[in-house]
């Protein structure tokens, strides 16, 4: 089963105080470390697991600059066979534009299955995957937490709300957006990633793709980015752990528990 996985490199923002630039339309990310998008690492792992089980080849694709090749190399080190980067020249993009660019490249890669993450850690949009599926004419399902291949079909377990899953049968070729927790992404060492640079990594310039101006203009635009308002919040209990513990037990008892 030949698989294409779409990956994105995003800033690592745990405990970071994000800074908004002066135009108030962008987040200052240059000084931040970058990692593979959490959802995408599950998608890559799933692709490799399917490859290990069923054979075939895995291609990893990203849209971005040379720095973004890092996540492609990670995918290669995890077991992908080749990678493609589409140089976007730093132009502003949104999910629709990215999907369009990806579609024009993936259209020429013969494959049975396309996997993407549900959404990205930075913009949290969840747009690229399904849009890409539609442009490629693939059947699709979003928020998938389990995959089984059954003949010419794929059976996807979709995570709905409230602890209920939907089992859906899709005909291949298909596109699935992968939810976290579907597997446990394997670790690849620093050396493992360096060695992966021996595998094929092709670079295509977006200008070579023959997309129209219209396709490359984002239909949505951010007018302003701002911090959430500080709306009171919790009453912080301070002091020695023993003092705090007494206070908490008191609160719990007054509410009728821990009696």
């Amino acid at each position: 089963m030949d698989i294409v996985v779409c990956v994105k490199r995003v800033p690592f923002t745990q405990e970071v105080d994000l800074e908004i630039d002066r135009s108030k339309r962008f987040v200052a990310t240059e000084s931040l470390a970058h990692v593979i998008n959490d959802w995408d690492s599950y998608a890559v792992e799933e692709a490799i697991l399917l490859k290990e089980k069923l054979g075939g080849e895995v291609t990893a694709v990203t849209v971005g600059s040379e720095d973004d090749e890092e996540v492609l190399r990670r995918a290669l080190a995890m077991g992908a066979d080749r990678a493609v980067r589409i140089e976007s020249g730093g132009m502003p993009m949104d999910g629709t534009v990215v999907a369009g660019i990806l579609a024009s490249v993936i259209r020429n890669i013969p494959c049975d299955l396309v996997l993407t993450g549900v959404q990205a850690d930075d913009d949290n949009q969840a747009v690229v995957g399904v849009t890409l599926a539609e442009l490629l004419g693939l059947s699709h399902a979003a928020v998938v937490r389990g995959i089984e291949v059954s003949g010419a079909d794929i059976v996807a377990r979709i995570e709905l709300e409230g602890g209920v899953d939907e089992i859906r049968r899709l005909r291949l070729p298909a596109l699935l957006t992968i939810q976290t927790g579907i597997n446990e992404p394997r670790y690849v060492s620093v050396m493992g990633i360096r060695k992966a640079s021996k595998k094929e990594l092709k670079v295509i310039d977006v200008k070579e793709l023959g997309l129209s101006q219209n396709d490359l203009v984002p239909p949505t635009e951010i007018e302003e980015i701002y911090l959430p308002a500080d709306t009171g919040g919790a009453e912080m209990l301070k002091g020695d752990p023993s003092v705090v513990a007494e206070a908490v037990i008191d609160i719990m008892r007054r509410k009728g528990v821990a009696l």
């Binding site: 690592f12 745990q14 405990e15 970058h34 990692v35 670790y187 620093v190």
Partner: peptide, 15 residues
């Protein structure tokens, strides 16, 4: 832990 060390230079992932 390894990812934090590589990306932030400490095992906690703190900036």
């Amino acid at each position: 832990v390894f990812m934090h060390l590589e990306k932030t230079g400490n095992p906690f992932g703190k900036p």
